[in-house]
Design a protein around this nucleic acid. Structure first.
Lengths: 212, 212
DNA sequence: TAGATTGTTAATCGATTAACAATC
DNA sequence: TAGATTGTTAATCGATTAACAATC
């Protein structure tokens, strides 16, 4: 499996390629592809070479060709149905988020354990109780879940997702989850990102005030 | 400035320390601190040593002491007022997100350019037009912004934020922004995270089906 | 003193960058 | 052929891990 950093950059390349395609370009060099993303040309070539030979010496990369290849590599040359667990503010926002659908991800099932929310309709989907996870996931071939429940409930719900046959979890709860090796996990921790930002700003402020 | 990876882990240490504190512990060793986070004891010690000497040989780290030190290092031993720009689904969700306030971050000003939204009240805050950024940011000492506008508008709004004196931007738009060196930037790209997850799941599925 | 645990140095590992022969 | 650009090898850089003297 490719290093995590490489996969992240491949997603960026794909976006940039789509932008070039939109502009009517047909080929790009590694320099052209990397430049708007602040990635060196050698890095671009090395990252792509990890997955195969896509370039043409003297010419560069054919955009249509590379887009197809990268979509296949990332596994997004198909539709991915998603389960959304936890219908709080964040969950409801993610349900309406356009960015997912544009990349082939679509929320097709909603879950919560609040009796007030169960049975309610959001965007044409009815909220099911957490207990229905197993019953719903398998027949609908749902292998990915967005986990948006409060921190206290996150590990318990993650265990239920695992028991229900989930294959990957995008975790929004601010704590590290423990899942078995056959289940993939990606964490989106907004507080940590913001703390990172605060640290950077504080650091640069310090430098400025020392210099001035 | 500490490497980005170190700062991210320091945020995790802080959370774990707070959990131990909550349980009534008074000291932890680097092994105890790292274990629930799946971080090796040597890494914990090295990360902390980057910022100074906090440990006591033979004893470990005094929890209260280390929490205070880390909060100071991260710059969260103070309140950070935030501007929230873009009152779409994501923006409204972030406004209600509890995780920020618990760490000292508080949204104190809202901006949008939709005439329908300007003047509206969300959680006691009135949405201002984008043009009011400069007028509002400086006197209220707001140096951080959450940028939740659509991709097409993101760079333009980022430029306005920079011109209005912002010091740091947490970018939720799915494209890389260009900002001057004195402005810090952290990107939260949900589509890329989800593509990462899809890649991992696809990869492990492949291995399983080959083996079986 | 014996046991525990730190901070730090040295060794390992992995990721990035530079250079260049091979190719169109 | 000359110019451009690839894929890949070697060199550099940075981050992680192991080992251990110093300390409580």
């Amino acid at each position: 499996m490719a290093p995590k950093a490489v996969v992240g950059r491949v997603s960026l390349y794909l976006r940039q390629l789509e932008a070039y395609q939109h502009q009517g370009c047909t080929t790009v060099s590694s320099s052209q592809l990397g430049q708007p993303l602040a990635i060196k040309n050698a890095q671009v070539r090395k990252d792509l070479a990890f997955f195969g030979q896509f370039g043409h010496p003297g010419i560069g990369y054919r955009i249509d060709e590379l887009i197809d290849a990268l979509r296949h590599i990332l596994g997004i040359d198909r539709e991915w149905p998603l389960a959304l667990v936890g219908m709080g503010n964040l969950g409801r926002a993610l349900l309406k988020y356009r960015g997912f659908r544009a990349r082939g991800f679509q929320v097709v099932a909603l879950f919560d354990n609040d009796p007030e929310k169960i049975g309610q309709d959001y965007d044409g989907l009815v909220v099911e109780p957490i207990e229905s996870l197993r019953k719903t996931l398998a027949p609908r071939q749902i292998s990915l879940a967005l986990l948006c429940v409060p921190a206290e409930a996150a590990q318990r719900v993650a265990d239920l997702l695992v028991a229900s046959g989930i294959r990957g979890i995008l975790n929004f709860a601010p704590l590290p989850l423990v899942v078995p090796a056959h289940v993939s996990l990606v964490a989106v921790d907004l507080s940590i990102q913001l703390e990172n930002l605060a640290y950077k700003v504080q650091k640069t402020s310090g430098e400025v005030s020392c210099a001035g």
